[in-house]
Nucleic acid binder design. Sequence first.
DNA 1: TATAATCCGTTGTTTTTCCAACATACTTTT
DNA 2: AAAAGTATGTTGGAAAAACAACGGATTATA
Lengths: 220, 220
Amino acid sequence: MINELEKIKDSVLLQDIKVEELSSMLGCLRGVIKHYKKGEEVLSEGAEIKKFGLLTEGKLQIVQYDYLGNKSILSIIEPKQIFAEAYAYVNKLPSMNVEALVDSTVLFLDSDKLSSPCQNCCSFHKQLVKNLLFIISNKNVNLTEKIECMAKRTTKEKLLTFLSLESIKQNSKEIYIQYDRQGLADYLGVERSAMSAELSKLKNEGILEYNKNWFKLLQK
Amino acid sequence: MINELEKIKDSVLLQDIKVEELSSMLGCLRGVIKHYKKGEEVLSEGAEIKKFGLLTEGKLQIVQYDYLGNKSILSIIEPKQIFAEAYAYVNKLPSMNVEALVDSTVLFLDSDKLSSPCQNCCSFHKQLVKNLLFIISNKNVNLTEKIECMAKRTTKEKLLTFLSLESIKQNSKEIYIQYDRQGLADYLGVERSAMSAELSKLKNEGILEYNKNWFKLLQK
DNA sequence: TATAATCCGTTGTTTTTCCAACATACTTTT
DNA sequence: AAAAGTATGTTGGAAAAACAACGGATTATA
């Protein structure tokens, strides 16, 4: 257990919580460690969620099946990230599955205990709640930004919306993006090749310069 | 002040908090009441947010301007709803404005105070945090669902994804939707008339029946 | 009840995207 | 350095969406 804590002590969820407090926290939040083999199911669609997960080791993917049975990958969970927290707090049955991409270890924490500090109002509770609110709010802002991009009608507008948002975040007209072309196309909800063609057009029109992950927005 | 509390005492944020505790809560969370005339700006883009709002009376709209200056309405805030909470917790400058659609009254609450209970660990803090986590998590789930719809490539698929999700939520093949056609088109990010045409097709193909706000998914 | 305003479906045209197939450049492996 | 694999850009035809314009139905208003 101590070993697991070592791996996640500098996660966002546990930010600014003293190492000494971590093990008492585990008891308070009914921490449970579980191991999964590659390919195993960590959480399944429709199963009630009372605890949320903090990945200590490995890699998970959150997948969803639509009304036709088509599979789509919602996100990849890396170590130190939490998952399923939204469903733990809305008391709604999840519509997605979580699968282990490689052998993985997850620390499950009781969502109820986290938001209802114990009698003695342990000092770390305050910080935990703050961190959790930050994480969920942040996801919220990110989802809203994605929607802002996707809501545009043309690929060109989607691209420019995405790039201007990045430009603001990186505080520069020159930006580096985290996605490859396929990843960016998936993020924007468009076809990769069509997007590439659109990028070329923007370059020809003198609106944009780019090379691999580097982009530069030219002023009009 | 007492008068304002009366109007919001059964809001989701204040759910399961005793009326007697409300006024002490106000002090603890540095509650501030502000009035706005129709058309006035409640929050403006780029202004640091330390408090989030709870609308006690009136109607607000959250608007955003894209890189071309086009205005889009992100959401309408009705009484008892909170707003700007995500930005209050991520310490990020908001990229949207909040405007009063009619004369409105807002109760601002200190986001820091809410997540950091005072020494005596007032009982209502626990419940407030729980309620806030519920609200934000819920928004999260809703945004994810919207993205699930918008990510589909065709209007037909967007419609069917939306309707299946509603069908699950309403636990029936017969559903009532909250949007009019223009509202649904905006939600899905498509053109109203094209969407109408697509609905007609689905009806002809025997996949769907509908009339105004009533829809029925027919089994294949 | 007449009138205006709004909502919704239809149609035809233009624009954009999707899709498949392929070419080129870059990376990794052997 | 050759070979294989991967990522990106290009093209052309088919499909879909956007757009504009209009007509009928419903609702709100005078």
